[in-house]
């Protein structure tokens, strides 16, 4: 397998996910299969090929610096799991 369960641990941590051992094994197997398939890309010579991040030939799309009304705060906060004092409430961050 290309991806070991320990590596899945690292990727999961980077992705902010926790996985059970069973999931770890499953994802290790699946990711390995997918990457194995993707490995065929390495056969292609792309040394002189520019990457394409955008298919569009667009450039310089901007807007003018103009203030428009913001969202009403009650509406902004209406989807929040926890709210206090007009703010989004989260567990305390210790630094």
């Amino acid at each position: 397998m290309r991806i070991k369960p320990e590596e899945v641990d690292y990727i999961a941590a980077l992705s902010r996910l926790v996985l059970s051992d069973q999931e770890k094994n499953m994802y290790a197997r699946h990711l390995s299969e997918i990457l194995e398939h993707a490995e065929r890309l390495s056969e292609l010579d792309t040394d002189d090929v520019e990457p394409t991040a955008h298919v569009l030939p667009l450039k310089n799309v901007f807007r003018d610096d103009q203030v428009k009304p913001s969202l009403e705060r009650d509406i902004l906060l209406s989807n929040a799991p926890e709210v206090e004092n007009g703010c989004f409430k989260v567990p305390r961050i210790v630094e």
Binding site: V61, F62, R63, D64, S70, L76
Partner: peptide, 26 residues
Amino acid sequence: AEPNTHCCPICTGMPGVLPMPNKKAI
């Protein structure tokens, strides 16, 4: 300003929103 009163779906990263750059900032 009062907290969260200069906010909209875009600057709070709501699902589906897209950024449109400010010419003046450039």
